[in-house]
Design a binder for these strands. Structure first.
Length: 187
DNA sequence: TAGCAGATACCTT
DNA sequence: AAGGTATCTGCTA
């Protein structure tokens, strides 16, 4: 079923970036890490039957572009076949968050008629980072909140989340995000 | 205004 | 049917 998927890994500065694409160049999964071995394990866990790394892929370049705080230079098609419909609902809202803005778990929950903690689990298991911008979701107290880079939340993850937001132009005062950077999904 | 229960809602297996 | 949660709110001081 996913035997024609291909995995690509690229290096940029101190990070490794990986994408899995399907036969139509749709995004099946993406992730980045400060550790290549951990990134490889992450993908092994995420998807079997993926062919080994081939030549460079344009989606890997787009990923680095987004990592640097810019918008993609072309449209990214996403293969949602192996996530739940609840996750799809959440990710659809995430895709609407403008670059340089953030929203909260609670307001996403309100928009899709769910609960904030359930939204948290869906956001935490986002397999399309950073194209689906889970780094733009924060707690209601306007702090940075949590972020995971190698599968689980970590201090380093939070630091990366902060850097991503700063590069996009999100305004921070100390460890709080300025209200001017808040965006709310339409109910 | 920061810290901390307790409560809620709901997804996943 | 139980277990887990990258939350929220209101109460304290």
């Amino acid at each position: 079923m996913s035997e024609n998927n291909r995995l690509f890994i690229a290096q940029h500065e101190d990070k490794w970036f990986g994408v899995i694409v399907d036969e139509e160049d749709r995004l099946v999964a993406s992730a980045f890490s400060d550790n290549r071995e951990k990134l490889g394990k992450h993908f092994a866990h995420l998807s079997r039957n993926t062919k080994p790394v081939e030549k460079d892929h344009w989606l890997a370049k787009e990923m680095i572009r987004v990592y640097n705080g810019k918008e993609p230079s072309r449209k990214i098609e996403i293969d949602f076949r192996n996530v739940s419909s609840f996750q799809q609902n959440v990710y659809q809202v995430l895709q609407g968050i403008p670059t340089g803005k953030v929203t909260t778990y609670g307001s996403i929950a309100k928009a899709i008629g769910s609960g904030p903690r359930a939204v948290g689990t869906a956001v935490a298991s986002n397999p399309y980072s950073p194209f689906i911008p889970c780094h733009r979701v924060i707690p209601a107290d306007m702090s940075i909140g949590n972020y995971s880079m190698n599968g689980k939340p970590s201090i380093e993850g939070c630091e990366v989340k902060r850097e991503l937001l700063e590069r996009e132009g999100v305004v921070l005062h100390g460890d709080k995000i300025d209200a001017s950077s808040l965006w709310k999904p339409k109910a």
